[in-house]
Design a protein around this nucleic acid. Structure first.
Length: 416
DNA sequence: ATTTGGGGTAGGT
DNA sequence: ACCTACCCCAAAT
């Protein structure tokens, strides 16, 4: 058995650690057992930060994680990240024994940590910064040395659970948006939508490997979709014959098009003031034809694809499709200058000042993974049904984005 | 403050 | 139509 190469290890870590369903304990064991990649994928880094954050959501270390996270997402507006950052920072300041020192370190201009996070989110343009985040930062800055304001802020932001909720919201959104792993993308290329092109480009030895990966039945199905007209002499001959007979037809039959063009010319000249470029119209027709032709081919591909069993490794397909589109959008170099604030599913308001609006926002429903279900069963055995908060906090890294009430509801579902 | 049970809604199949 | 995840509420603990 050949040894696992570092590249293989990187693929495995990218796939497994980046899967929200894998408990952090398992991910850690894997990280301990495999060489850490010299150039980890962004997905791996992102998932590691999310796991670190889940284990310790409200602390100075969490601020580190949030800052790293927002630097990972530089092409994307990092609003939810900085909102979580503000929420955590506000709690840390409000609960610090020395309010003045903490508030100064976090919110004072220009170098307070949270202050910088707000500024960076706005890309240096204060007009773009979220007004809620700015307001929080300003309030804390102004409260330095002001005992009355401090009491008010302690009341507003001293709730650790609230800050943690913001972080958990962010975690849920980030996990949902994390997108497919390298392995999933490769599987897609070999067995999914890209299969025909991939197999067409592969030689026989490579195809033999693919055949092992996708199985015999699937391989036959893909190969049947590859038609290869160039290499087959018979097909070549048929194409040649078609062309020549087409030319023959043209010689025999009167082409109606010139006459039609002439008639159309007359009508147009009579009716319209501005000249119409008939040639352009003809070209358009030709273009339409070719588009119609190719779309017909696509439709065929589509139906074939729909008939396929949904293939390898597709957890939570709905969340991915929605949010992944968004991240493709931001990866692609479409000028954000032209549409700086495209509403995106990731811009979920997480600011502590938006609780009221947040309430009207329904979380995206995520199916419970079998790992979560197991953890819930174990939790009920260990803590007893009803102690949802304990069960939740005992496996915070499994129940990502779940609330005690979610656990209660799920248990109710499972007991039906 | 947290849990509980009931009942409702949204979204997917 | 049905199921599941999520939401909301009032009452109990």
């Amino acid at each position: 058995m050949p040894r696992l190469t570092p590249a293989d290890a990187s693929l495995i870590l990218d796939h497994v650690v980046g899967d929200a369903c894998i408990p952090t304990a398992t991910a850690s064991a894997l990280l301990g057992g495999l060489p850490f990649p010299a150039h980890p994928t962004p997905r791996l880094l992102r998932s590691l930060l999310l796991r670190r954050l889940a284990a310790d959501p409200v602390s100075a270390a969490a601020l580190d994680s949030l800052e790293l996270l927002s630097s990972l997402l530089d092409s994307d507006p990092a609003t939810p990240v900085s909102a979580a950052h503000i929420a955590v920072a506000a709690f840390l300041a409000a609960s610090a024994p020395d309010f003045d020192a903490a508030a100064r370190a976090l919110f004072a201009r220009p170098d307070g940590r949270a202050r910088r996070a707000v500024d960076e989110e706005a890309g240096g343009d204060p007009a773009l910064a979220s007004s809620e985040a700015l307001a929080v930062a300003d309030q804390f800055e102004a409260a330095v040395g002001n005992a009355f304001s401090q009491e008010a802020l302690k009341g507003l932001f001293g709730d650790r659970a609230k800050a943690e909720r913001r972080v958990r919201d962010l975690l849920a959104a980030e996990w949902a948006a994390i997108g497919p792993s390298r392995l999933e993308l490769a599987a897609e290329q070999i067995a999914g939508d890209g299969a025909v092109e991939t197999w067409r480009a592969a030689d026989e030895t490579v195809r033999a490997k693919y055949r092992i990966l996708v199985g015999e039945e699937k391989a036959r199905e893909i190969l049947s979709r590859i038609e290869d007209p160039i290499s087959s002499p018979q097909v070549h001959k048929v194409i040649h014959d078609l062309k020549s007979s087409c030319a023959d037809l043209h010689n025999v039959v009167d082409d109606p098009l010139p006459a039609a063009k002439a008639a159309a010319d007359k009508v147009l000249a009579a009716r319209m003031d501005n000249a119409v470029d008939i040639n352009a119209e003809v070209n358009n027709q030709a273009a339409n034809c070719s588009i119609a032709g190719s779309s017909a081919v696509n439709d065929q591909g589509e139906t074939l694809r729909k008939g396929m069993p949904s293939s390898l490794m597709d957890w939570n397909p709905t969340a991915q499709s929605l949010l992944w589109e968004d991240s493709i959008d931001s990866d692609g170099s479409r000028s954000q200058l032209h549409r700086p604030h495209l509403p995106s599913p990731r811009r979920i308001p997480v600011s502590p000042l938006q609780v009221a609006e947040n309430k009207s926002m329904r979380r995206r429903a995520r199916r419970w993974s079998s790992v979560e279900e197991e953890a819930l069963k174990d939790g009920v055995e260990q803590f007893g049904s009803g102690n949802w908060k304990d069960i939740l906090s005992h496996n915070a890294d499994v129940f990502i984005g779940r609330t005690p009430v979610d656990l209660k509801d799920k248990w109710r579902n499972m007991m039906r």
